[in-house]
Design a protein around this nucleic acid. Structure first.
Lengths: 116, 116
DNA sequence: TTCACAGTTCATCATTCGTTCAACTGATGG
DNA sequence: CCATCAGTTGAACGAATGATGAACTGTGAA
């Protein structure tokens, strides 16, 4: 290979491109986080959890969906580490993983409100 | 109907649930925003735009994908008002819609880095 | 141990999604 | 006007996704 010329086919003056490479797996992970939150059913769950822990049955009641459906949603949220799990007797309580996640959810809801 | 008892089938003491109702269309919109950002190809574009405007051809070069592919991605990002469009001669420049969006992207990438 | 309750997992199925090629629009330059 | 470059749009197709009922796991009570 010759040099690292980016053989760009166009002629305009390029903007300042200070690319910090952004590892592919990082991109994939961040996208997966967004994707997990990008479903109304799952986002509703995250919103519920903004005000504290809930057990699966409660979440099912609040959304009007079946236990199975809610459990599947929680599984996906958990796979992305967006929620935590805690057993207490018969019930399993879910909560937001950290304040970072809470901020992300609030931020998107704000944007949705403000934008319309 | 009797009263507004939420006929909850379980027996544990419920956590403080201060639900602010969260309009369905708002939920749908917020989810759509996350969904738009929840694809590696589109997220890479958003990341590129963190450091300023780019035209479609540049974005295509940076990702190694075709013009058509990138254009479709931008269409989705634009539908959710995540990016802006500006024509300058032959080229069309895209940029992040506002600092709010930039924050959202940075936040998710941080979370992806910090997490696993 | 046996039953019931709370959740999870599995398999299926319809829907949605993302990429691609080809055809189209629109501005610039000769 | 015509050719060309930059980008968009539409249709097609395979891949990924989400909901659901049935079967399964695990905990507490009788």
């Amino acid at each position: 290979m010759d040099d690292e010329t980016p053989d760009c086919g166009h002629d305009h003056d390029h903007p300042r491109v200070a690319h910090e490479a952004l590892a592919p797996h990082l991109l994939e992970r961040a996208a997966a986080i967004f994707r997990a939150a990008g479903d109304p059913g799952r986002l509703r769950i995250l919103h519920c959890l903004l005000c504290g822990e809930h057990c699966v049955s409660d979440l099912a009641d609040e959304s009007g969906d079946g236990l199975s459906t809610v459990s599947q949603r929680l599984k996906i949220l958990r796979a992305e580490r967006l929620v935590t799990r805690r057993r207490d007797g018969k019930h399993i309580f879910y909560g937001l993983a950290d304040e970072h996640v809470a901020e992300l959810v609030r931020s998107a809801l704000d944007h949705a409100r403000h934008d319309h």
